[in-house]
Amino acid sequence: MTVNTQDEITDEILAIEADARRAVEAGGAPELHPRRDYAPYRSSLLRHPTHELVRVDPEEIERVSPAFGHTDVSPLESDLTIAHSAEPLGERITVSGRVLDGEGRPVRNQLVEIWQANAAGRYVHKRDQHPAPLDPNFTGVGRVITGDDGGYSFRTIKPGPYPWRNHLNAWRPAHIHFSLFGNAFTQRLVTQMYFPSDPLFALDPIYQSIADPAARQRLIGTYDHDLSVPEYSLGYRWDIVLTGPKSTWMESEDAHE
């Protein structure tokens, strides 16, 4: 397999972005999600469907969602810095925000899961071969149940960027993986949160797989000085908006139409 240079990948990224821009200028709606068929991200080549998705109305299965609660998640799981006997190395941060539906209503009592690399850019995952040190005091997995306002908050350390093998000298910008449930299964979302002003954004085909620049921006947390704790940690805010207002308020009487 040919190993491409960063310049070759960047040219492909720019060509697709230009194509998306022309579509919007011609009156199309901006793309909200990444393209599944996104060649600069080489692993997508054989893993995207070539048929159009079949569009249907959601039925009851899709209009409801699994329920999670405090029996599923311990409050300690939202602090990724206390899972071991000593503190992990790295820049202590908090990441807080709200999970909202498409109409801005809070998604209450739902599960938020995160996972991330350590400060050196290494995952605990056994197939991560990046020769950066593991931190015996950091696993990098967190869970929380949202509050009545849809709010969540994690305490962790800032993950490091890491290399991967998409092309020569490929590096992922620092990110935290997020998994979210809504009130309907159609709202299910797995995504990644990024940090402001990362110099790797323009070079990363995963971030750039979202062809619309405004949509990409929605993945970047905001530094919020009010969330920083004096002499302890820096605070980032990131709100997450799930698809679709429908569903949610299904009463049981229509449940078996």
């Binding site: 990444p34 197939r127 797995v190 949509a215 929605r218 990131w238 799930l242």
Partner: peptide, 17 residues
Amino acid sequence: SDGRQTPSQTVGPFFGY
């Protein structure tokens, strides 16, 4: 966040733990 839908990103290779 600007009130619009948050885009998806790949689950990546390292979700296993």
